[in-house]
Design a protein around this nucleic acid. Structure first.
Lengths: 249, 249
DNA sequence: GGGTGCCTAACTGTTGACAATTAAGTCCGA
DNA sequence: TCGGACTTAATTGTCAACAGTTAGGCACCC
């Protein structure tokens, strides 16, 4: 019953440039990853429509896999579907951001409490320290996109470490939406140089197992994050919407 | 430029409740609903495979809408995908059930606390009372499937009442999975005649705004639910798996 | 001049056929 | 008798063409 080496003739249909490191993954999944990446990194800005035929052409596939990928991204909160109209990258308004941070707080609180209960493993400590290191390096070179990535990664690591598949699954969607909200205000991160120490504080309290301190610090941290996102998105969403209008006319 | 829109047609359509309920559902969505229904009500038992061509034939469509619906149900936790093999209704083992109830507790706790904060509206009270009424009626006529439905509906109403779209979205998936777990042990509900009063207790504490009591009662309630599910599923999953094996051979 | 109704263009929704993959059954040889 | 490679049936993954819907523009009528 051991895993026999199915080393059969692997037809290398690797075209010259199309797909970088395509493994045994199905086409739909690689298309999904590609689209998720481009939504998250801002290539497809909030408010924009994703044209099926254009994407299919760009990925050198048919519309089937593209539609399938879109279905998944809808459930992740990275796309909204308007029947017979198309798929659009969500425009998060003030109430969306508030709800997003509220839901994140609910999930992270539960994860942290459980993590303290069952103790933080050495591997978790190492992962978190690495994320903090990446964040510091990103701040150093003023790469605010990377700062946002390490920021979300830090929080995601905590949730994953709690060992609940369902909590992780739910949080992944929230993290994706958060990235959407943060994208609008990338560049305004520099006004918040205390990000690193806030995360370091949470890390310390987590290792120390300080429950009440942890909950308080988390609330503060997310609250400031929400305030920043809300404040900076006030005009940003309007601009974004206007920009979309321009491009579509 | 000229923003002087008379806004006549808009106000008419918006103010008026004239939107006919004949919303044009797309084929994919109706197929999705149908499949969700049959998974949840046990027509497609846990462990069974959903054949695309057979379902397409049964729904008198092509495989496209069926595949699209399956994608959605995967994200809801009602199906698992094994690439190049097929879609299967999940078989929840002991750890799955534990994780499921843990995640539910996390979400419901947050929802309840917020609900107490912002006060319970009259509409919410009415909805919850109705759910309790349906539960009592279902118990009376020993319709355990309906008991499970009203049970989950009660909890879902609480989460929805908290007014967080994302919390509701996450909880919907958890509720669907819970229904899957409960289906196995439908009929063993009769051993737990205290279900109604447990829910009534939660309802009272919620209206009274008793935080600590609420959290304690919720923990107890979900714990007993988890214990029952776990205990009754011990042999059930084995039987179910065996039954699936029989039908597939 | 303003409103109304068609009309067209572009897009999504749907379909049936084709290709690729998996797993089980079978046959052969040691 | 056992092991392994081959064959084969069934199922999923992918594709290109067709059909239906939506929204915006244009001419026409009042």
């Amino acid at each position: 019953m051991s895993d026999s080496i199915t080393a059969k003739g692997r037809t290398m249909a690797a075209k010259e440039s199309g797909t970088p490191k395509v493994r045994k993954r199905t086409l739909s999944s690689v298309v999904t990853s590609q689209m998720r990446q481009r939504i998250v990194d801002g290539t497809f800005p909030p408010g924009s429509q994703l044209n099926e035929v254009e994407l299919a052409r760009r990925f050198a596939t048919s519309r089937g896999p593209v539609r399938e990928g879109m279905q998944r991204l809808v459930q992740e909160g990275l796309l909204v579907s308007e029947p017979h109209r198309g798929m659009f990258v969500p425009l998060l308004d003030e109430s969306d951001i508030a709800d997003l941070y509220y839901a994140r707080a609910a999930v992270e609180r539960a994860a942290m409490l459980r993590l303290v209960d069952q103790g933080v493993t050495a591997a978790t400590v190492a992962n978190l320290e690495q994320a903090l290191g990446e964040m510091a390096a990103a701040i150093e070179r003023e790469d605010w996109g990377a700062v946002a990535t390490s920021d979300l990664r830090f929080h995601e690591l905590i949730v994953d470490a709690s060992g609940s598949p369902r909590l992780s699954r739910m949080y992944a969607a929230l993290a994706g939406e958060s990235r959407l909200a943060i994208n609008i205000l990338v560049g305004s991160y520099d006004g918040r140089t205390d990000y690193l120490e806030e995360h370091a504080k949470i890390f310390e309290l987590l290792v120390a197992g300080n429950r009440s301190g942890l909950l308080g610090e988390l609330s503060r941290h997310l609250q400031t994050g929400q305030d920043t996102a809300t404040k900076n998105s006030r005009g940003a969403v309007a601009d974004s919407a206007a920009a979309v209008r321009d491009t579509t006319t």
